[in-house]
Amino acid sequence: MNDAPDWVDQARRLVTGLGQTLGSALREGAGDGEAAGAHPADCHWCPVCQVAAVVRGERPEVTDALAEVLTAAAAALRSVSERASAAAAEREAAEEPAPPAPPAPPVQHIEIA
């Protein structure tokens, strides 16, 4: 049917991979950051801590909303791609091959006045 990869599945794997990578980086940096004046564990207002909470999975409502947005975007891209493919196939089917042009004569008559 369609050999294209499933965009929704790829987007979910990307978000999961990013979450794991960033989560491990945050856990590793927590020990070093404590001495350097990092945010406390109960920080709920700064954007960095909010993103970290989403990555760690502490904000499932945001993760669900992001998954819905990515799913809708993937569906829209898929429908646009399918429409473009169908339109191209219709154009190719509608076009008749033009008859070949007759070959130019080897000698041409030129009148000189």
Rank of each mutant, 00 (worst) to 15 (best):
T21C: 11
N2D: 15
V8A: 05
V8N: 01
E95D: 05
E28D: 13
R27I: 08
A84P: 01
A72V: 03
V55G: 00
A53L: 03
V62M: 04
R13L: 15
D3E: 15
R13D: 12
E68Y: 00
L18A: 12
Q50E: 08
S81Y: 04
T21S: 14
A11T: 05
E82C: 05
V62R: 00
L77N: 02
A53M: 05
G17Y: 09
V80Q: 08
V55R: 01
P97L: 12
P47H: 07
Q50F: 03
G33C: 11
R12D: 06
L18I: 14
T63E: 00
P60C: 04
Q10G: 09
G23R: 01
A88H: 04
R83Y: 06
Q108P: 05
V107Q: 15
A25I: 13
S81F: 05
A65Q: 02
V80S: 08
A74K: 02
G57V: 03
D64G: 02
V55N: 00
A25M: 15
T71H: 01
G17Q: 11
Q10F: 08
P97N: 07
V80R: 10
A35T: 14
D6A: 11
A4R: 12
E61V: 06
I110M: 09
A25C: 11
L26P: 03
G17A: 14
L14P: 00
E96H: 06
S85N: 10
H44S: 14
I110L: 11
A74W: 01
H109M: 13
C46Q: 07
R12H: 09
A25G: 12
A113K: 10
S24Y: 10
V80G: 07
E34P: 01
A101G: 11
V69D: 01
L14K: 10
P105R: 14
L14D: 10
H39S: 06
L14F: 11
V55P: 04
S85R: 12
W45A: 12
A86V: 08
V69L: 12
E28V: 13
T63L: 00
C49G: 02
C43S: 07
L26G: 05
P100G: 15
S85V: 11
H109Y: 14
P103W: 13
A35S: 14
W7V: 04
E90Q: 10
W45F: 12
D32V: 11
D42W: 03
E111T: 12
H39L: 08
A65R: 06
G23K: 01
A88E: 06
S79R: 06
A67K: 02
R12T: 07
A30K: 11
